[in-house]
Simulated assay, not measured.
Amino acid sequence: MTRSALIVAHGSPSDPDPQEAALKDLAARVGALLPGWRIGGATLAKEGAFDAAVAKLGGPWIYPYFMARGYFTKKVLAERAEPLGLRVLEPFGTEPALVTSAAHALQRALCEKGWPAQDTTLLIAAHGSAVSRTSAESARDFAAALKAEMGFAEALAGYVEEPPFLSESARIIGQAICLPQFALNAGHMLEDVPEALAEAGFAGPVLPAFIDWPETPELIAQSLERQAASA
């Protein structure tokens, strides 16, 4: 039986095409790991992309490529999917294996610097929100889980859209590493995060957005396979 899934992200309303292309590339990498599946990618910011992808795939599962259960996953995507009878899965940021994957990436970065985790502060750079607690709570939970997993000296979060702002949290004395909790290389990741870190004088390593992690396609593929097996 052929299954299909549509990976959906927010994208960049001011310049939708680069993120639309990046998501289609991610979908292709996921599809290469799932023989017998049809995998598509679309951003909400690209006009008509979601509807065109749904029509092409013929009733796919909707996989939210978002970092938290927030406004876009619980309201915007749900309202788009419900009239079409589409199933919306849990978002990427809630994947159980994400903490382990992040721990491996952080360990590689620490090894390159020769830093023990117990002497290092972990900074999670996240979106935050002026209207919802979900984004901030997700980042704090992620920081706490990684501290417990790896034994960082401290783990904290800083936000783009709510206090404590990233430019404040990033004023860290001693060695520190930053993990941005962003799915795509869109505006916040390309502009707000580097600007805030520069303002704070943050000098430690900064990991890439999750779309550039080599583990990301496998995480999504494994999630889809697991949910198909239990369906």
Rank of each mutant, 00 (worst) to 15 (best):
S12R: 09
P13L: 11
P13I: 12
P13C: 10
S14C: 10
D15A: 13
P16N: 09
D17P: 12
D17L: 14
D17T: 14
P18N: 00
P18Q: 00
Q19H: 11
Q19D: 10
E20Q: 11
A21E: 12
A21T: 10
A21V: 09
A22W: 02
A22H: 12
D25C: 09
D25A: 12
D25W: 13
L26G: 00
L26H: 11
A27S: 07
A28D: 15
R29I: 03
V30G: 07
V30P: 01
G31H: 02
L33W: 05
L33E: 05
L33Y: 04
P35D: 03
P35V: 03
P35T: 06
G36P: 09
W37D: 01
W37M: 02
W37T: 03
W37E: 06
W37S: 02
I39F: 11
I39E: 10
I39H: 08
G40C: 05
A42K: 03
T43A: 08
L44M: 02
L44Q: 07
A45W: 09
K46E: 03
K46R: 12
K46W: 03
K46P: 03
E47D: 13
A49W: 01
F50T: 00
F50E: 00
D51M: 06
D51Q: 06
A52R: 09
A53G: 00
A53S: 02
A53V: 02
A53M: 00
A53H: 03
V54M: 02
V54P: 07
A55I: 12
A55C: 10
A55P: 08
K56Y: 12
K56W: 12
K56T: 15
K56G: 12
L57I: 05
G58C: 04
G59T: 11
G59K: 11
G59F: 01
P60N: 06
P60K: 02
W61C: 12
W61V: 14
W61P: 13
W61I: 13
P64M: 06
P64W: 03
Y65G: 09
F66K: 09
M67K: 12
A68S: 13
A68L: 07
R69S: 15
R69H: 15
G70D: 11
G70V: 11
Y71M: 11
Y71G: 09
F72V: 05
T73M: 08
T73E: 13
T73W: 09
K75Y: 15
K75T: 15
V76K: 15
L77W: 06
L77D: 05
A78M: 15
A81S: 11
P83Q: 04
P83W: 03
L84H: 15
L84Y: 15
L84A: 14
G85Y: 13
L86R: 04
L89V: 01
E90V: 05
P91L: 09
P91E: 05
P91D: 05
F92Q: 03
T94K: 08
T94R: 13
T94H: 09
E95Y: 14
E95M: 15
P96G: 07
P96Y: 03
A97Y: 09
A97M: 09
L98C: 04
L98I: 05
